[in-house]
């Protein structure tokens, strides 16, 4: 069958194999249609002259490889995306965590950090931030560097402010950042309760126990077997009675962990009910 993308199916498999063998990054469990689009996009954005050149740079140029990982993974995110979900965090989930002396939250696949700052704002408003720690992880070191700066385009603030209000926020959203040219720099206080670290959901293990794990719009890029493995990793990393939150189109139904989880409310949140 002829190909519509710039990168052929065979070339996709060659790159996956190269990247696994030479760099230790395992993309074998990624959904192919999306991965192929990402690779074709990267190939044309970077104006490669041939597949051989693309492959050579990916294999041998470590600086380029960092850029490759950033380009292949999807890093689109926003603050208070899906306000109904954040409303539920604010009203139900986070207040329930108040009984713990210390709250540990894992945000897996945090990308450039917009969700981490959104959660920190909720914690602050609920007076929980002082005893919370947000572990924000991503496969991709470049986006973590951006996340740790806590600066987002000022042009986005109007829409983020609308999301914040739709999610039940009643303060002046602009009180959380200071405008600096075309960037909004968020308060240091929010960042002090975040730990940014690389973590590869495909190959790295559980590193702590949490009361809340959020991983939204990451599993959609994985095939079923990898989704199940990652859900098991979350299960191992979640305390009993802890919460797992996924993206609006993701589910734990039909997965090996579903038997010990109970759905909470109408959003994609489950509670671990027995160990």
């Amino acid at each position: 069958m002829s190909q519509t993308g710039i990168i052929s199916d065979e070339e996709v498999e060659i790159l996956i194999n190269d990247v696994l063998e030479h760099h230790g990054y395992d993309f074998t469990g990624y959904s192919r249609a999306s991965l192929k689009r990402r690779l074709s996009r990267l190939y044309s954005l970077d104006k490669h002259l041939s597949f051989a050149e693309f492959r050579y740079k990916t294999l041998n140029d470590d600086v380029y490889f960092k850029h490759f990982v950033e380009g292949v993974t999807v890093n689109v995110t926003e603050m208070f995306r899906d306000p109904a979900f954040y409303q539920m965090l604010r009203k139900q989930i986070l207040p329930n965590l108040n009984t713990y002396p210390f709250i540990r939250i894992w945000l897996a696949g945090c990308s450039t950090g917009e969700e981490a700052y959104s959660i920190a704002i909720l914690l602050k408003e609920l007076n929980l931030l002082h005893k919370s720690l947000i572990y924000a992880t991503d496969i991709n070191p470049t986006v973590l560097e951006k996340a740790s700066l806590g600066m987002f385009p000022l042009s986005q603030m109007k829409s983020y402010s609308e999301n914040y209000i739709a999610a039940g926020g009643i303060k002046d959203f602009s009180s959380y950042y200071s405008a600096n040219y075309n960037l909004a720099k968020f308060d240091e206080e929010l960042k002090r309760k975040m730990i940014f670290s690389t973590h590869n959901l495909v190959s790295d293990r559980s590193f702590n126990e949490f009361q809340l794990i959020l991983c939204r719009n990451v599993l959609i890029y994985f095939d079923r077997p990898l989704q199940f493995r990652v859900l098991q990793l979350f299960d191992q990393s979640l305390e009993n009675l802890g919460y797992l939150a996924l993206g609006t189109k993701e589910t734990i139904d039909f997965s090996p962990i579903s038997a010990t989880y109970k759905k909470v409310g109408t959003e994609k949140v489950w509670r671990k009910v027995s160990a």
């Binding site: 192919r32 999306s34 999807v74 959609i220």
Partner: peptide, 11 residues
Amino acid sequence: EKDFTFSLDYS
């Protein structure tokens, strides 16, 4: 997908 299933993508 090639196996005639859907994938979603938030790119």
